[in-house]
């Protein structure tokens, strides 16, 4: 029997990891459940529901604080697979835990996993609620949009370089996940559906962010920061627009013709859907092999 245990806010004594575990449990559900769509599993709430010989899928974060739990799983299960989310800091203590697992999918990659035969890097995905319900051919109102904080120099420069390119839609907040000022998924989705480009500056520690995949879900073209060619290493032949500095994006956002934008939007959207389909198949094959 295959069982799924979402463990991000369980067995966690570290308050930082617990906060983020809850955040990602709330926001990453749709993404992980999508990848597991072709798996016939039963959701469980505790390891007490695991019987000897079960195959178990764990979704977890902050795993370096939970070695004891992973040792126990290793002895109890026939096979167990880990979806390791939210290791943006690339914590060195994560890797030894992988030794207990049969196979690992992790978000936020690093070069040490590029050619691993046990660890597969996946995107952090999109926040739960983003759906592909839009007309890809429809002309869009906004040239670019951005939702989020201005925590470091990249986002500050992005704003400096692009603010005069209008119409745009910006909802900048001072504090991450600010409940009063942040827009909800449906509000953001509505804006993305009406926008051509989504500048996606790096996250706080890592080039990845939900933003990139939310844009792709909505048929919007992500413009990403190419840090050490990260995106080409992790997703070869991807059509994302990559920049080293934000003034390189000005010409594209401001002057591309409707036809050129539409072509690129379709290219990105098709690539993303192919990726989703291929990876869902890969997950199924790996778990059933």
């Amino acid at each position: 029997m295959i069982k799924l245990l979402w463990n991000t806010s369980r067995h966690q004594n570290d308050s930082f990891e617990l906060t983020w575990g809850k955040y990602h449990e709330e926001n990453s559900g749709d993404w992980i459940y999508f990848l597991l769509q072709d798996i016939n599993y039963t959701s469980i709430n505790s390891e007490e529901e695991i019987n000897k010989g079960d195959t178990v899928i764990i979704v977890d974060s902050g795993i370096h604080f939970k070695e004891h739990f992973y040792i126990k799983l290793n002895t109890l299960t026939k096979k167990f697979f880990l979806f390791h989310i939210n290791d943006e800091h690339l914590d060195k203590r994560s890797r030894p835990i992988y030794n207990y697992c049969d196979y690992v999918w992790r978000t936020c990659c690093s070069p040490k996993y590029f050619s691993s035969n046990k660890v597969k890097c996946i995107p952090p995905g999109y926040k739960s609620g983003f759906e592909q319900k839009f007309d890809l051919n429809k002309k869009r109102q906004f040239k670019w949009c951005f939702f989020g904080t201005q925590h470091k120099s990249s986002r500050h420069d992005m704003n400096f370089q692009l603010e005069k390119i209008k119409p745009n839609f910006v909802n900048r907040i001072d504090k991450f996940a600010d409940k009063k000022k942040s827009m909800n998924v449906k509000e953001m989705e509505k804006i993305y559906f009406d926008t051509n480009f989504a500048p996606c500056p790096a996250g706080f520690f890592h080039p990845e962010s939900y933003r990139i995949y939310e844009a792709l879900q909505c048929g919007t073209i992500p413009i990403v920061e190419s840090v050490y060619n990260y995106f080409d290493n992790v997703y070869p032949n991807n059509p994302l627009i990559k920049i080293k500095k934000w003034n390189e994006a000005k010409e594209t956002i401001n002057n591309w013709s409707h036809d050129k934008i539409l072509y690129k939007r379709k290219e990105c959207f098709n690539w993303w859907n192919q990726y989703l389909s291929d990876h869902k198949n890969f997950v199924r094959k790996k778990i059933y092999e």
């Binding site: 904080t149 201005q150 925590h151 470091k152 120099s153 986002r155 500050h156 001072d174 504090k175 706080f204």
Partner: peptide, 9 residues
């Protein structure tokens, strides 16, 4: 002033 505009520095 620049740092005042950046929440993560």
């Amino acid at each position: 002033s620049l740092k005042d505009e950046l929440s993560g520095i």
